[in-house]
Design a protein around this nucleic acid. Sequence first.
DNA 1: CTGAAAGCGCTAACAC
DNA 2: GTGTTAGCGCTTTCAG
Lengths: 346, 346
Amino acid sequence: MRTPPLAQDDPRPLTLRDVSEASGVSEMTVSRVLRNRGDVSAGTREKVLEAAKALGYVPNKIAGALASQRVNLVAVIIPSLRNMVFPEVMTGISRVLEETELQPVVGVTDYLPEKEERVLYEMLSWRPSGVIIAGLEHTDASRAMLKASGIPVVEIMDVDGTPIDTAVGISHRRAGREMAKAILKAGYQRIGFMGTKMPLDHRARKRFEGFTELLAKSGVEMADQEFYSGGSALKKGRDMTREMLERTEDLDFLYYSNDMIGAGGLLYLLEAGIDVPGRVGLAGFNGVELLQGLPRQLCTMDACRDEIGTKAAQIIAQRVFDPAAEYERVVEMTPTISYGDTLKRR
Amino acid sequence: MRTPPLAQDDPRPLTLRDVSEASGVSEMTVSRVLRNRGDVSAGTREKVLEAAKALGYVPNKIAGALASQRVNLVAVIIPSLRNMVFPEVMTGISRVLEETELQPVVGVTDYLPEKEERVLYEMLSWRPSGVIIAGLEHTDASRAMLKASGIPVVEIMDVDGTPIDTAVGISHRRAGREMAKAILKAGYQRIGFMGTKMPLDHRARKRFEGFTELLAKSGVEMADQEFYSGGSALKKGRDMTREMLERTEDLDFLYYSNDMIGAGGLLYLLEAGIDVPGRVGLAGFNGVELLQGLPRQLCTMDACRDEIGTKAAQIIAQRVFDPAAEYERVVEMTPTISYGDTLKRR
DNA sequence: CTGAAAGCGCTAACAC
DNA sequence: GTGTTAGCGCTTTCAG
């Protein structure tokens, strides 16, 4: 007898052995019942379930994972939870994984490559079944770890670059170009840009690049631009918009790198009694739910957040289920512009 | 020799043994180096580190955890990531845990008790070092699991009830009462309430109860009320406010169960040209950053989100570090009202 | 249908 | 300083 009678004050977690002894069934059979594996007679089954419940047994997945060499976790590595973008991606991921036995585990990088590397290392050390990670830009060490891991890796949000394994997202360069096209087509010519400081956010940078690139092609130069970091985005949008219009009075369009600062700008313009979109047009990026509550609909472009999460999770699930199957390396979603009320139509 | 020479196409994850063989140092010593435990000569140390790096070895925490009976994870169980409240609590938790070797792992319940139970079961099966869980209301099974787990449990956000182990939060009943007091003191008498459907959110319910209770004590009855669920909160606030003021024309104050619908209401009133706070006063709850960008500051009450996260993590860290130490069972934070511009002062 | 034996990859506890 | 041994709690495999 290895295990002495349980002392009242010993909070040692219960083991399979405890359930086995309580039910008079071998550990192996108890394990089978608890995992719904193999055939077990209804009688034994019931005995085991009863004992497990009575004791309040919670299986030890650590031991289970070590023995079975299988861990039903999917590491999801994202820059931030405060962005609204990522909670929505998570929604898509969760919805898909809930129908499998896989579970998402979230790690947050705060947009810092070194933190991403640490988080990734920590997560990989739990030997997850797959990785979903935001962006295509990673440190060399991170890329090496992902390659060496031997598990499905899906890089999400962006397709402008070379994926390690698979990418699901939109082309932010193209998104920037498309918006620039729409703005020029509407007849705007004096365009200002406001956005986050670039080094922090590759996707915002790519949109900016695509945007300026298309303007340049049409012989239009960005008339003004400003970058911010930190603080309340809504307030930043408000303040930056005021400042920019004071500084460059003849601007007729403002392109924002996200909807939150765009909304701040819109609120400011409406208060200031400036005609939108006649005197000044506006556009943001993301299609956040918040916008629906604004007095006027901001022109924006959706980032296909839910679809990206959904597709990424599907790819992981499919590849875990059937490792030999073929799969697409790059899945590019097509974002659409919602014109709203802040861009002249003609 | 147990391990055959590595086939090129075998993506078997590396083990300590691989590093041991590559460096010519025993597994045990390799383990010591990698964990910074015990004394190892500088020479061996270097050899090991080099080999590990060259191979791209990532330790297997599953095996480590099983062997050492220690898992440096803290389960954090919250209703939603979309609420802005919880990302901020997470910030506090992360900041504290980053200075320890503990790591938060998030589980989301969508405000569903049964999902909470499932998530809790899953997380406990990984034998975390502690649990931080939102709210004091749980299923009997959840409470039983938490009690039986033998690990520190901190219930956060709310202190109106009996904690399983420890609670850190504010009294939402008191918060409701305080706001009612401030509103009455400002001279408002015809008060309407808008909020989420109650069964989904105990803390909103408690605020509502405290609020109506104090009104009743002063002989004031709620003049109108409406509950919503789902959709864009900002838009709901806008729409519900319009409807309520059409329905009950003599209302002079609107109390919202959260700042987002309050902000929607504020935007509507400003557009409609209704005098705020003269004709109608407004108050919300939470103190979300978003408000700073609005044309007028909404009267609100902060929920001490960051402090709650911070304190909860500190309690967990301290108790993991020193299980024998004494600790407070209930830590009540004191939220303060920011009057802003939507409540008459006198 | 059920059970016994042998690990999974690592670390605690000891030897040397 | 370094190595050896014996598990951690479970599942795989194979025998009945």
